[in-house]
Amino acid sequence: MKVEVISKGLFSLIVDEGRKGKQRQGFSQSGPMDEIAYRWANFLAHNPDNTPCLEVMGKMTVCFHEPTIVAVAGRQVKVQVNGHDQPSYSSIKVNKNDRLSFESEYVGSKAYLAICGQWKVPYHVDSACTVVRESLGGLHGDGRVISDSDCIDISRCDEQTYATLSVRQLPIRHSMSMQHGISIKHSMSIKCGENVAYDLNAPLRVIKGYQEAHFSQVAKRMFESSEYTVSSSIDRMGYRLTGADIASSLSSMRSEAIHVGAIQVPPDGQPIIMMRDRQTLGGYPKLGCLNPLDVSRLAQRVPGETVSFIFQNSEEARADILLSRQHVQRLRGEIA
């Protein structure tokens, strides 16, 4: 089955779960900026985890040469098939020659298109993920982003299997929370911890890092009590924030490995949060690291929006992650 790109949007690329465990060899981890939306899109399109999909900024339009099932997820995403509105966070059955268009309502936020089937794309270092600065991955294997008229080859399931695939849909209370940035915990009064991705009011959770002792108590209180603005200097490598200075007493340090969500603080005191395509090593002191669940929330912020932070210990972070995994398994019907 061919999927033709009619309009590529502003910046679109192929992502999967990334090159895990390859930083020691010098490769960026890569992967989806919003891992939560990426995983939901694949599940709703009846794909196994780690299936490639399209990460898109701006409005993309694609044409399907055969019937298939797709799903679109992301922050406040609008979806249409042949000009007719369709739900996000839901399986969508498309027919031959149908045109699907989708975009986030926020320019700079990411939307994810998952298409049912096995993607026939090149794999390099165990991943199809595109890393532009490494000239690696993507549709042509050389790090190029998606262009107009590109065609993606996908092995769709046979007619009998296709006819039996059900329409999956994230329950409305969960999908609406993702779409409108409202925590389920706050809006639906259900168990604490069962919140989803885009609560814009809740602070981002931070586990203190190796160099936190080199930041004064005043600097740490300032960091936790201040709002920071997402600057225009953001990309898949990192998000530079502007706000209260939180300079460290460290004037120099040896470079060390950088985890996704690490909060580096250069000499100007303005935090930089490292994202999926970050470099493997860095030499700025790190105040801490985002709770992995909050990396997706930050990834969907756009320049001019604000974020705040709250410290938590590693055991609290671990409990958050375990509760979240259990909640997702319930929504998927994997556990009672």
Score class of each variant (00 low, 15 high):
residue 138 G to R: 10
residue 334 E to L: 10
residue 111 A to F: 01
residue 268 D to A: 00
residue 306 T to S: 13
residue 263 I to M: 15
residue 62 V to L: 09
residue 102 F to L: 05
residue 266 P to D: 02
residue 152 I to S: 03
residue 299 A to D: 13
residue 155 S to D: 15
residue 70 V to A: 09
residue 202 A to H: 04
residue 179 Q to G: 05
residue 120 K to C: 02
residue 156 R to W: 07
residue 86 Q to F: 06
residue 47 N to H: 06
residue 288 G to I: 08
residue 180 H to F: 13
residue 75 R to M: 11
residue 191 K to V: 09
residue 78 K to N: 05
residue 11 F to M: 12
residue 190 I to C: 02
residue 333 G to Q: 11
residue 34 D to I: 04
residue 64 F to T: 04
residue 237 M to T: 09
residue 40 W to S: 03
residue 205 R to F: 12
residue 29 Q to C: 07
residue 42 N to I: 05
residue 228 Y to E: 05
residue 87 P to C: 02
residue 296 S to T: 05
residue 66 E to R: 14
residue 156 R to H: 12
residue 94 V to W: 09
residue 65 H to R: 01
residue 294 D to M: 10
residue 190 I to G: 09
residue 5 V to T: 02
residue 114 A to S: 15
residue 119 W to R: 01
residue 224 E to R: 03
residue 55 E to H: 10
residue 126 D to H: 10
residue 8 K to H: 10
residue 269 G to A: 07
residue 132 V to S: 07
residue 167 V to D: 11
residue 107 V to F: 15
residue 205 R to N: 10
residue 202 A to F: 01
residue 163 A to G: 05
residue 237 M to G: 06
residue 162 Y to C: 02
residue 117 G to E: 14
residue 311 F to W: 11
residue 174 H to L: 13
residue 84 H to P: 00
residue 323 L to M: 12
residue 129 C to D: 15
residue 164 T to G: 03
residue 25 Q to V: 06
residue 98 D to Y: 03
residue 145 V to P: 02
residue 65 H to W: 01
residue 111 A to M: 13
residue 181 G to A: 06
residue 97 N to V: 05
residue 82 N to P: 06
residue 33 M to F: 04
residue 225 S to H: 06
residue 250 L to Y: 02
residue 202 A to G: 07
residue 130 T to H: 13
residue 214 H to D: 11
residue 48 P to I: 12
residue 285 P to R: 00
residue 148 D to W: 02
residue 107 V to I: 13
residue 172 I to N: 13
residue 133 R to T: 07
residue 267 P to Y: 03
residue 286 K to W: 04
residue 160 Q to E: 15
residue 325 R to D: 11
residue 293 L to C: 12
residue 99 R to G: 00
residue 142 D to N: 14
residue 121 V to Q: 11
residue 308 S to R: 07
residue 267 P to E: 00
residue 49 D to Q: 10
residue 334 E to C: 00
residue 227 E to I: 06
residue 44 L to A: 09
residue 159 E to W: 03
residue 328 V to D: 11
residue 267 P to D: 02
residue 87 P to H: 07
residue 248 S to R: 01
residue 45 A to K: 12
residue 93 K to L: 04
residue 285 P to Q: 03
residue 243 G to M: 01
residue 247 A to G: 03
residue 141 G to I: 00
residue 102 F to E: 08
residue 166 S to I: 07
residue 319 A to M: 14
residue 96 K to V: 07
residue 263 I to R: 05
residue 204 L to R: 07
residue 173 R to S: 04
residue 46 H to I: 04
residue 15 V to R: 10
residue 218 V to M: 08
residue 236 R to S: 06
residue 288 G to E: 11
residue 169 Q to G: 09
residue 197 A to Q: 06
residue 93 K to D: 00
residue 110 K to F: 11
residue 210 Y to N: 06
residue 177 S to G: 15
residue 90 S to G: 04
residue 43 F to D: 08
residue 259 H to D: 05
residue 153 D to V: 06
residue 219 A to L: 04
residue 24 R to L: 08
residue 250 L to V: 07
residue 333 G to S: 11
residue 319 A to C: 08
residue 331 L to I: 14
residue 13 L to T: 14
residue 169 Q to F: 09
residue 191 K to E: 13
residue 214 H to G: 02
residue 292 P to L: 05
residue 135 S to Q: 11
residue 234 I to V: 14
residue 134 E to Q: 15
residue 271 P to C: 03
residue 134 E to A: 15
residue 291 N to S: 08
residue 321 I to H: 14
residue 124 H to L: 14
residue 55 E to G: 05
